[in-house]
Amino acid sequence: MRLILLGPPGAGKGTQSARLEQKYGIPQLSTGDMLRAAVKAGTPVGLQAKAVMDAGGLVSDDIVVGIIAARIEEADCAKGFILDGFPRTVAQAKSLDAMLKSKHKELDAVIELVVDDQILLSRIEGRARETVAAGGTVRADDNPDAFKKRLEQYHQLTAPVSDYYRSVGELRTVDGMAAIDAVTAEIDSVLGK
Rank of each mutant, 00 (worst) to 15 (best):
A128G: 08
E112A: 15
D117L: 10
A134C: 05
D117A: 14
E106L: 03
A134V: 02
A140M: 03
I111S: 08
I111M: 07
A133G: 00
A140E: 14
D141H: 12
V132S: 08
A128H: 07
A134N: 12
I119K: 15
E112N: 15
D141S: 11
R123Q: 10
R123A: 04
D116S: 11
E125W: 00
D141W: 09
L113Q: 01
V114C: 10
E106G: 13
P144K: 09
V138C: 05
V138F: 06
R129K: 15
T131F: 03
V132D: 01
V138L: 06
D108S: 14
P144I: 11
T131P: 00
D116K: 13
I111N: 03
E106W: 02
S122V: 05
A109K: 04
R139A: 15
R127Y: 03
A140D: 14
E106F: 05
L107F: 09
I124T: 07
L107G: 02
E106Q: 14
G126Y: 03
V138T: 05
L120A: 11
A128M: 07
V115L: 09
A134P: 01
R139I: 06
E112P: 00
E112K: 10
D108E: 08
L107S: 05
D141G: 11
A133P: 02
I119Y: 09
V114T: 14
R129C: 00
R123I: 10
T137V: 15
T131I: 12
L107I: 09
D141Q: 05
V138E: 01
S122Y: 01
I119G: 00
A133D: 11
L113W: 03
L120F: 01
L113N: 03
D117K: 14
N143Q: 13
V110W: 09
D142Y: 10
I111H: 06
E112W: 01
A128D: 01
R123W: 10
G135D: 01
T137N: 12
R127A: 09
E125M: 14
E106R: 14
V115N: 04
R139C: 05
V114Y: 02
V132W: 01
L107K: 08
R139Y: 03
D142A: 05
I124R: 03
I111P: 04
A109Q: 07
L107Q: 06
D117G: 10
I111D: 05
V115Y: 07
I124L: 09
D108T: 12
A133C: 02
V132M: 07
E106V: 12
E106K: 15
A109T: 04
S122T: 13
S122H: 10
D116L: 11
R127D: 04
G136K: 05
V115K: 01
L113P: 06
D141Y: 11
L121R: 06
I111Q: 08
N143E: 13
I119N: 08
G136D: 03
R123S: 08
A128Y: 04
Q118L: 08
G126N: 13
V138K: 06
E125D: 09
V110A: 06
D116N: 15
L121G: 02
V132T: 15
I111C: 05
A140S: 14
E125L: 09
D117E: 15
V110P: 00
G126R: 09
V132C: 01
N143M: 05
R129H: 04
D117Q: 13
P144M: 10
V115M: 03
R123T: 10
D116T: 08
